[in-house]
Amino acid sequence: MTLLTHPRRTAAVSKEPAKRAVDRRRGGALRKQLTAWLFLVPTLIVFGLFAWWPIVRSLLMSFQKTNLVEPATWVGLDNFRALFDDPLLSTAVGNTLFFVGLGLLIGFPAPLILAAVMSTVRRGAGVYRFLVYLPVVIPPVVAILLWKWFYDPGSGLFNSALGTIGLGPYTWLESSDSAMLSLVLEATWAGMGGAVLIYLAAMVGIPGELYEAAEVDGAGIWRRIWHIMLPQLRSVIGLLLLVQLISTVQVFTEPYVFTGGGPENSTLTVLLLIFRYAFQDGQYGEAAALSFLMVLALALLSAVYLRATRSWSKT
């Protein structure tokens, strides 16, 4: 009996502290969770108020007609229909893709080449890094106004400099053929510093033995770049490519300050068109609808890109 009852009693007696331990553990977890939630509250409020709620509102607005004062009315897909009826939409999309393309052609390889050259410099590397990064610390609008003077067809720096060797004068921003290229040149100059530093940092991480071994095997500079440096930098290149794609699709400041979208809408980008809808024409519904389409396009672009490069980055 004793033997039989004892363990039971023991069990009954020992259940209490175990339950208390579980409760304590649960209470502890709850408290921990509460702590975590309380720490999250400020971030949630800020994100909720200034990011998520505006996103939801703008999505709703893309199906509404509103002047932001009187109650909005639901108009179904009317805003989207009006967008697709606007001939400026295809112009803006075409121009944006052109900017992205020129950016990839000029703006994307430039920092990589510069970083490769700078990585071979032994003396005064700090000075070069400082000089390359300098444009990044200049406020964008100030940089653009400075370049506006560079591009001035009469007394600008570029035409004066080119004039001394018998070239030009060129119209730069004043011609629909060269305006977009002029914008890309400035954007490349202004944004290159960050990418150069990232590439330089990544290049430091490439083991020196790889280069030495290749050199011993008789590989020249191009083969060393092609077979060692570029493959080693692959993930960084991939990341910067995605970042550049997303940022160039959203180009706004350059066309807005340089040209206002002209001449003849040749620098009218999608974001500038959204801006015009909202703040020039007061068509908030159409502006929201186009923003929504742009987000969709960017999400799609990122997804395709990540899928395409998944296997690449694994290898």
Binding site: R31, L34, T35, L38, V41, P42, I45, V46, L49
Partner: peptide
């Protein structure tokens, strides 16, 4: 309420008050 929880609660309240 543990001191950490209390501090977090105070922090949260301050943030909410500041935001509002």
């Amino acid at each position: 309420m543990s001191p950490i929880t209390r501090r977090a609660a105070v922090l949260g309240c301050v943030a909410v008050t500041v935001a509002l």
